[in-house]
């Protein structure tokens, strides 16, 4: 190949020069700087285990770096709160699919934990929002994972393993996120109904919650379409509502099909709110839950941690393999 394997140098803009990020990397330090973790909004602080005592806590930098509405992407520092993110996007009629998560949470925090909010049925998993991140490695180096464009398959997909890694593989400093247009119309309805029947009759609802008896339906889109979908829901026995029910504390993960088949008895109802079509259950789940991961999956997780953080200094005590079932979530 005449281009050859010869060493091409990275283009100047691919080398991180933002002094704010460099200062954050300095603060995190290298392998000699000891155990370290990022403190965000502490909204999901107990998930994945407790941070080990003696771990130095740092804060990721905050603020919007770049937002070009026609690009439908936004580049923000990881310590930016969801509230600040939303405020930056709102004037352009856009938002990021991080809805239903605590507004005081940081962008970096919710991505590190990797648990989607209750609009996952409509928006997809929150990991899909992350296009690029700059993180500080265990060695204290700034690393870029992914790319800033809305589509990218260049190299191995580090962004995916960083979402949900609880800051045990790298500490997020900056992220570029995909934005979406805000909907023109939105509606909430609720009532006693068969969630499976309703789900099969609707076209891509935003969320469908179920407590064993009552169904809450969230619709978004163009006014005419929301009206047509609303009519289907009304016919099924739902009534307009102001918003979702309070979600009870605790989070379980099940296969979505389990929710179709599970018929709770009277005593089992109302202790939980399940995300139909997704499989997240908030509260006390009386039904069957998912099994433990394969031994080979556990090994892969351990090996990845060993390769990314050989000295175990990144967020010791937290573990993405710690069962989330039954653990308190942010509500």
């Amino acid at each position: 190949m005449s281009a050859g394997p010869g060493p091409l140098a990275p283009l100047p803009d691919r080398v991180v020069r933002d002094p704010v990020l460099l200062a954050f990397a300095d603060e995190v330090g290298g392998v000699d700087a000891g155990p370290v973790a990022v403190e965000g909004g502490r909204t999901q602080w107990e998930l994945g285990g407790r941070s080990e005592p003696g771990t130095r806590l740092v804060r990721a930098p905050a603020g919007v770096v770049a937002f070009e509405p026609a690009e439908m992407t936004i580049q923000v520092r990881a310590g930016t709160t969801l509230d600040e993110l939303d405020a930056a996007l709102e004037p352009a009629g856009q938002r990021v699919a991080l809805q239903g998560l605590p507004r005081a949470a940081t962008v970096g925090g919710v991505l590190c934990v990797g648990l989607s909010g209750p609009t996952r049925l409509g928006h997809g998993h929150i990991r899909e929002t992350l296009l690029q991140t700059r993180y500080v490695s265990s060695e204290g180096l700034l690393v870029t994972a992914g790319g800033p464009t809305v589509k990218n398959v260049t190299g191995f997909d580090l962004c995916r393993v960083l979402v949900g890694s609880y800051g045990t593989l790298g500490l997020l400093a900056e992220v570029t996120l995909r934005t979406r247009p805000r909907p023109q119309a939105t509606a909430w309805l609720a009532g006693p109904a068969d969630p499976a029947d309703l789900f099969d009759r609707l076209y891509r609802p935003m969320s469908l919650l179920w407590d064993g008896e009552t169904v809450w339906l969230h619709l978004e889109g163009y006014p005419e379409d929301v009206a047509v979908q609303t009519a289907i829901a009304l016919e099924a026995g739902l009534q307009p509502m102001a918003g979702p029910p309070p979600l009870p504390t605790g989070r379980h993960s099940v296969e979505p099909g389990v929710l179709r088949r599970f018929r709770p008895d009277r005593a089992q109802r109302s202790g939980f709110v399940a995300e139909f079509g997704v499989g997240v259950v908030h509260g006390e789940w009386p039904g069957p839950t998912q099994g433990t991961p394969d031994a080979s999956v556990v090994t892969l997780n351990r090996r990845l941690k060993q390769l990314f953080d050989p000295t175990g200094r990144l967020n010791p005590g937290r573990d993405p393999l710690a069962p989330s079932n039954g653990k308190a979530d942010h509500r």
Partner: peptide
């Protein structure tokens, strides 16, 4: 030669997103 199921049908499979790492590898 070992077998592994990456990701899963459940909402939040345990561990990091190895499924996402494998796609595009």
């Amino acid at each position: 030669g070992e077998l592994a199921v990456l990701g899963g049908l459940g909402a939040d499979p345990a561990g990091v997103d190895l499924r996402g790492a494998f796609v595009g590898s």
